[in-house]
Design a binder for these strands. Structure first.
Lengths: 127, 127
DNA sequence: GTTATATTCAACCGCATGGTTGAATTGACG
DNA sequence: CGTCAATTCAACCATGCGGTTGAATATAAC
């Protein structure tokens, strides 16, 4: 278990909600790259790409390491794992198509976040 | 393979980026519910919950069915599956921690979207 | 037919997003 | 040191988000 807080799941899924950022993740998963190398395929400003990287970094999906004049960007897949684990709960619904209530009873131990009654958004952010 | 377009992956991940919406998905996965039943645990207006449902519906993660005076909301997990498949690509990076380049060579057949050079956002939306 | 209930619509608000451009920072190098 | 290159910062803009409230719609119930 990766133990991701509500707020960081927010940031991870938000980071993934943009096609450019998903493509960047694919990119840096193949090999670590500089910001310039990452930006090259897209026709947007370097500053825009830099902002995308900030979003990815906020979600802790990439790490940036200063390497001389460059910044090497590399993937950090741990939070992706957390996202996938969140999604894994729903596997039963697309595989077996079991009755939802019965399925609930079977998997009732699944932790699952609780954001009811105003707890939303103010969850303790991961350190 | 679920064959989700770039734009709909956007909408799916966006829908998941809010804790309230994730909780709603969990909720309706256990059993189909009315909008009122869904809204009850949260201290926000019914209209706000209705908007959340619209976001989920835009991502095709729920289906709404008129049932008399109510609308029954039920889960549609197919697009969640697509999201999970997108994430599955990264499993190798959190399990083996292989060298990224080597991993790339091994998995080079993975389709992967391409949003470079202005193709972003204008992808053919799923019908 | 009128009224009550469930849900959505419309307008609005404050704030975040994704993009731009131009200036600032930081480090390599002649 | 001066300059160039890589990257970020700051200000700005248009748009979208998540929430509100109040009106509108649709169906049920009396």
């Amino acid at each position: 278990m990766v133990e991701l807080t509500v707020a960081s799941l927010d940031s991870v899924f938000h980071a993934l909600s943009d096609a450019t950022r998903r493509a960047i993740l694919r990119d840096v998963s193949r090999e670590a790259k500089t910001v310039g190398q990452i930006a090259e395929p897209y026709n947007m400003s370097l500053a825009a790409v830099s902002k995308h990287l900030q979003v990815l970094e906020r979600a802790d999906l990439i790490r940036r390491e200063k390497k001389g004049n460059f910044r090497m960007v590399q993937l950090n897949a741990d939070n992706l794992r957390a996202a996938q684990e969140w999604l894994a709960y729903y596997e039963t619904f697309w595989t077996g198509q079991l009755d939802a209530l019965q399925n609930y009873l079977e998997t009732a131990e699944t932790p699952g976040e609780d954001v009811r009654n105003g707890n939303s958004g103010t969850g303790t952010e991961k350190g």
